[in-house]
């Protein structure tokens, strides 16, 4: 197992290298640059800025320099938020996005899981149909609809929650965004859980457990559920990587200073270093969570052994 993890971490290095290389050149292919703004800078200032950031150098040299800096953990300065380095931006925003994303995921796994199990145990009965209806609604209503509705009801009408803002991380400010982030996830997890639980309840070893006169609790929780969580584990890995790196919609609507906005803003502004920083962060999260999923898998399923 230990050897396996080391090997996976080693294979992450070439993966990351390929991703960084692709991203570096792809964003350069896009027309324009960080200093082509609407206002238009005078050519002298623009040339000055470009010289300062080395943007006048040949592309390969910029690439080599970027890699060199990256190896030292230096993501470079942001071109559009000139007072900050990319590292500083992430140091400030990432903990916020991680907090929200993690809470939303935990909530989704817990509530979605329970809903899914209830549906599976009542297959084709009222309980099942209501979960399916909820899950379908949850996964079809987009977040940009859910978020304003939450603001309207809880913020404006009932005045229970603030309409937006981070409020230095006060719990009450997190509720709206977490709910918005988790609702579609609850729907997805509930549907996955329902499906895999039904599958699991139908399997032959569940029949064996019943034939042995084991209690319903043992049949459902000990034997059926443990097998049924495996698909949820596989889903949760990539979902965690996506959720923890922030959501532009939720962070924009609720005015949250997370990192979700950076990817889109940076790409639009050709803020090369910030784009690259976001790519590296998302890639690292994805690689890490996929590894965690595989380790969890081996923990849940003894047939999976890496050596």
């Amino acid at each position: 197992m230990f050897v396996y993890v080391i090997r996976r971490l080693l294979t992450a290095i070439p993966t990351l290298f390929v991703i960084v290389t692709l991203a570096f050149f792809l964003i350069r292919i896009a027309p324009g640059g960080p200093f082509n703004q609407e206002r238009g800078l005078s050519p002298e200032i623009k040339a000055n800025l470009e010289a300062q950031f080395g943007l006048g150098d040949p592309l390969w040299l910029q690439y080599v320099n970027y890699l060199k800096n990256l190896l030292h953990g230096n993501f470079g300065p942001s071109y559009n938020l000139p007072d900050f380095t990319v590292t500083e931006l992430f140091a400030k925003g990432l903990p916020i996005s991680i907090q929200l994303g993690f809470s939303a995921l935990a909530l989704a796994l817990f509530i979605g899981g329970i809903l899914g199990i209830v549906a599976a145990l009542n297959q084709n009965k009222a309980g099942d149909y209501s979960v399916i209806a909820l899950a379908t609604a949850g996964s079809t209503i987009p977040t940009f609809v859910i978020a304003p509705v939450i603001q309207l009801l809880f913020g404006l009408t009932w005045k229970l929650l603030p309409i937006g803002g981070w409020g230095d991380g006060a719990l009450i400010n997190k509720i709206g965004p977490i709910l918005t982030l988790s609702l579609p996830q609850i729907a997805i997890v509930a549907r996955l859980m329902r499906g895999s639980m039904i599958e699991s309840l139908r399997s032959n070893h569940i029949r064996t457990a019943r034939a042995l006169g084991l209690s319903d609790w043992s049949v459902v929780v000990k034997h059926a559920l443990r097998g049924a969580v495996l698909p949820i584990v596989s889903y949760a890995g990539p979902a965690a990587a996506a959720l923890l790196t922030g959501s532009i919609i939720v962070e924009t609507i609720f005015a949250i200073p997370g990192v979700g906005r950076y990817f889109v803003d940076a790409a639009l502004n050709r803020d090369y270093t910030l784009v690259m920083g976001t790519v590296v962060v998302i890639a690292l999260f994805t690689i890490a969570f996929n590894l965690i999923v595989d380790i969890l898998y081996a923990f849940f399923d003894p047939r999976v052994r890496y050596d």
């Binding site: 070893h205 034939a211 443990r226 003894p302």
Partner: peptide, 14 residues
């Protein structure tokens, strides 16, 4: 008590 046709799947793999 009962035993079944499918020995490969009748025990809980986990």
């Amino acid at each position: 008590s009962m035993i079944f046709q499918e020995p490969m799947t009748s025990l809980d793999p986990l």
